[in-house]
């Protein structure tokens, strides 16, 4: 009996597979991918390889010396660089402050709008509220520069009316960093609100209704009904903000230029300065490689949460 099954299996294996349509399908599926792969290789893979290559060279545009292969020296230099370590840790402090504030405010405002799903003019109110996050950071920082200006700015006008000394937040050593966090919070709190609304929207209506009928206390409602559904989207929101805050460059560059001193010098700003102010292309590429790996790690975490959500829903 066992033997006959074995032979049967073998004979099934020996049957030539219907290969032709399979390979034709394969050809077609890759053909459809070809244009995207073309752009991907030309405009993503090639520059990445180029960047990896540059990172091993001593290459400064302004120096007369020819680019020289120096192995891992750029990486060691970069790891030993105190100033850069400073901007990395500053970026993390910035990230932490900005994201905690934005998440907290975002959730509060999100719940407010969620509770008010029938308020008059909700769509217009949300439009006004969401505007800060779609304005390009260049415009945002210029706008705030105008508003915070020590002599012309409208905020300082009110400060002086209230009888206080006018202050220049953007060049003040202690105030510059909090101001950057503040402007970033103004820009991105709406995003966390948007994510909160989406997270709350992902809770099935039936479960909410059941909880309402059972008169579930608020804390248990959040813990047992809302949180299990909402945590994924909220997590994705926080992670996206992390990624974005870590990329912050235009905002800080125009608003404070990294100053005063290095008080608001975030990692992306340093990087830009290395490349386009001191033209150390090799060195800046080494830093870029480091940032690339951070970005890939963050993407992996992001997809992990996304998949966890998919699994939980099934």
């Amino acid at each position: 009996m066992a033997k006959s099954i074995e032979t049967l299996e073998k004979s099934i294996k020996d049957v030539p597979k219907a290969k032709k349509p399979e390979s034709k399908k394969n050809w077609f599926s890759w053909g459809l991918l070809a244009p995207v792969l073309f752009f991907f290789i030309l405009m993503s893979v090639l520059p990445t390889i180029w960047m990896f290559g540059l990172a091993f060279y001593d290459y400064t545009l302004t120096s007369a010396n020819k680019p020289k292969l120096i192995g891992f020296k750029n990486f060691f230099d970069f790891l030993a660089n105190q100033q850069l370590a400073g901007s990395v840790s500053r970026t993390f402090i910035f990230l932490l402050c900005a994201i905690i504030l934005q998440t907290f405010l975002g959730i509060l405002i999100g719940v407010l709008f969620w509770k008010n799903d029938k308020m008059p003019g909700r769509r217009i109110a949300l439009t006004l509220f969401f505007t800060p996050m779609v304005v390009t950071p260049i415009a945002t920082s210029l706008f705030w520069k105008f508003i915070l200006d020590p002599t012309l700015g409208v905020i300082n006008y009110f400060v002086s009316v209230l009888g206080f000394e006018r202050f220049d937040t953007l060049t003040d050593r202690t105030l510059a960093f909090p101001t950057l966090v503040f402007v970033d919070t103004w820009m991105w709190t709406p995003f966390m609100t948007l994510m909160t609304l989406a997270a709350l929207g992902s809770v099935p209506k039936a479960e909410l209704e059941a909880a309402r009928i059972d008169r579930l206390p608020l804390i248990r409602l959040i813990k047992t009904v809302i949180w299990p559904h909402a945590k994924f989207i909220l997590g994705l929101g926080i992670l996206l903000r992390t990624i974005d805050a870590f990329k912050t460059m235009d905002l800080a560059y125009v608003l404070t230029g990294g100053g005063p001193g290095d008080r608001t010098e975030l990692i992306a700003v340093s990087l830009y300065r290395f490349a386009f102010k001191s033209f150390k292309l090799g060195y800046s590429s080494a830093v870029s490689v480091f940032l690339l790996f951070i970005a890939i790690a963050l993407t992996a975490i992001y997809l992990y949460i996304l998949n966890a959500r998919k699994k939980a829903e099934e």
Binding site: M51, L271, L292
Partner: peptide, 12 residues
Amino acid sequence: FVPAAAFVVPYF
């Protein structure tokens, strides 16, 4: 997800 400043040199 990569900071734009990281890639601008090779593109340049």
